[in-house]
Design a protein around this nucleic acid. Structure first.
Lengths: 269, 269
DNA sequence: TTGGACCCTCTCCCAGGGGGAGGGTGCACA
DNA sequence: TGTGCACCCTCCCCCTGGGAGAGGGTCCAA
C-alpha cells in the first residue's frame, strides 16, 4: 500500500467501506467514474476527493434509492435540484413506512384467532345512468388516477345523488393494468372533459362493507370472496365499490366505510 | 366463472389479489399448496378457506419477510410459536427502521455544503501487552461478537487501564470476513477463556475522533482516509479504534467518542 | 528477475418477481 | 357433438443489486 495522491480500487474500497466489486459496478453504471483509468491495463484509480461522493452513494443505496435515481441525483449540478430529488426519495420512504405500518396492523388483525363474521347482503342494483370517468390504468397509478378523476367529477357534477362509486376490472391485479370507472349518480349527467354519461348495467351484487383505510381492503375482499364461493355462483364482471364514508367526509380514517359489491347470480341460500 | 366449492387459480387470484404467477411460485416454494391438483392436467384448484392463509402470506411478503421464513411461520403448528416468529420479524423491521433513520440523518450531514474540518493528529503508539480476545468474524456478526468479547474481557480484567479498543482487519469490508481483536490494557494480562495476553506492535497512527453512534462512522473513516492520502503514506495493518466514550459510559449516544487510528508512516507535513 | 499481492473481465448464482412462448384443458354455445 | 376460446400448464429469459470464483494480466519490492 504505497502511493501518495492516487488510490487503487482496493485502497479506495478501504476508505469508503464499499467493496471492490461494488465500486466496479458503480463505475459501469456511471455512478462513480474513477478519476483515472489506465488504458492498457484497465486499472481504476481514484482520488481522495471522490470519497465524499462515494459516501453519498453509499447512503442513498442504504436507503434503497435505485441506482438510476442515484445517478440522476449525482448528475444534477444545481444543489437545490439535488436536494429536491433527495427530498422526493425521503417522501417515498415515508410513504413506504406508512404502508409498512398498515401491513403490520393488518397482520395483527389477520392473526387474531377469532375475527368478526362479515355481514354480506345480496342486493339487486338496477341499471342507472351516471356521470363517469373511465380509463385504462396501471395498478401503480390507480390512486393518482382516482384522485384526478374524482376531482374532475366533483367539479362537473353539481348536484350528486348518493355516494360516489367505482368499477374495478378484475384484471387489475393480474396483468397490472385494467379498466377503471368512477362515477357519481346525478340527474342528466353532463358530458364535459373526461366526464360523460355511462349507463351501468343491472346486476345482483353480494355486498360487504369494509371499515377503515384501504390498505387491507383485500382482507374484506377475501372474506366476501369466501362467502360468494359458498353461497353463490360468481359472474364475471367488474367489482363495484361505493364510498359511503371516505376521506372527503371525515378526517379519521378509521371511520371510512366502503361497500364492496361482487357480481353474483344464482344465490343458493 | 362457474363453480361452487373449488376455485381455479385465476378465481383464487381475484379473491386474494395475488397474481396467478405468484400463486404458482408460492405453490412451488411450498408456501401455499393448492387444495387439489389435477394429476393429468396439472391444474391447481383452491378452496375458499385457503384465502386467509393467502392473505397472511401476502402481508408477510409486504413486510419483506423472506419466503423461507414465511414457510417456517406457516408450518409452526403452535400459535404461540408462530406469534413469536412474527414478533421476531417485526423486531427486525424496527432495527431496519433505526438504520434507515440513521442513514437519513447521515445523508443530511453529508449533503451540508460546509462541513467541519476533521482534526487529525499523528501519534506514536509504543508496543504494549494487553488482555485481548481475537477471532475471525463475518461482517454481519461483528456487533454480536464484539458485545460478547467485550463482556468476557470485562469479567476477567479487574483493573483495566485506559479505554477499551479494537483492531479491525481491513479485509472485513472486502471479503465479508476478517480478523478482529478487542483489548483492554492492564497490568499482567490474564489468560482465561478466550482472553489472553497479546503484544500489540508499535505503530504510528493518524488519529481522528468520531462523534456519535457508529452508523455513519464510515464518514469519519473517509475524512481520515482523505487526510492520510494527502499527508502520509498509509501502511497496511489493522485499523485501531479506541472507545473513549461508548454505550458503557453514557446513555446519550450523541456523546459517544471513538478514536480511529490508521497506521501510517512517512508523514509529509 | 521473480514472487505474490493486486487488478482486470467474464460467467454463474441468489431472491422474488415480470413477460412471453408453445402447447394442453374445460366449457359454453352452436 | 363439434368447435372456439378463455384459461391453465411448464419452461425459459429478463430485471435489480449484489456475491463468488475462474483465468489471466500488472505492479512493485526484494
Amino acid at each position: 500500500m504505497h502511493n501518495g495522491r492516487v488510490l487503487t480500487i482496493g485502497q479506495f474500497s478501504q476508505f469508503t467501506h464499499l467493496s471492490v466489486r461494488t465500486l466496479r459496478r458503480y463505475h459501469d453504471a456511471g455512478l462513480l467514474e474513477p478519476a483515472q483509468v489506465d488504458e492498457t491495463s484497465g486499472y481504476r484509480y481514484y482520488t481522495a476527493d471522490q470519497i465524499p461522493t462515494a459516501q453519498v452513494i453509499h447512503r442513498l443505496r442504504e436507503l434503497d434509492v435505485p441506482i438510476v435515481d442515484v445517478r440522476q441525483i449525482l448528475r444534477s449540478p444545481d444543489p437545490a435540484v439535488r436536494g429536491e430529488l433527495v427530498a422526493d426519495h425521503l417522501r417515498r420512504l415515508e410513504a413506504q413506512l406508512d404502508r409498512t405500518r398498515a401491513a403490520v396492523a393488518s397482520l395483527h388483525r389477520l392473526l387474531q384467532p377469532e375475527r368478526a363474521q362479515l355481514d354480506v347482503e345480496v342486493r339487486h342494483v338496477p341499471a342507472v345512468t351516471v356521470a363517469a370517468v373511465e380509463g385504462e390504468v396501471g395498478s401503480d397509478d390507480v390512486l393518482d388516477w382516482y384522485a384526478g378523476a374524482m376531482a374532475e367529477l366533483d367539479a362537473v357534477v353539481s348536484s350528486p345523488a348518493g355516494s360516489p362509486g367505482g368499477l374495478y376490472d378484475n384484471s387489475l391485479f393480474e396483468t397490472g393494468r385494467g379498466h377503471l370507472l368512477v362515477y357519481r349518480a346525478t340527474e342528466n349527467p353532463p358530458s364535459v372533459g373526461r366526464v360523460h354519461p355511462v349507463t351501468l348495467p343491472p346486476v345482483d351484487l353480494a355486498v360487504a362493507t369494509h371499515v377503515g383505510e384501504h390498505d387491507d381492503i383485500d382482507v374484506t375482499y377475501g372474506e366476501l370472496g369466501a362467502w360468494v364461493v359458498n353461497n353463490a355462483l360468481a359472474v364475471d364482471g367488474p367489482v363495484r365499490e361505493t364510498y359511503l364514508v371516505g376521506p372527503r367526509d371525515t378526517s379519521t380514517s378509521t371511520a371510512w366505510r366502503t361497500e364492496i359489491g361482487w357480481p353474483v347470480f344464482n344465490v343458493t341460500p
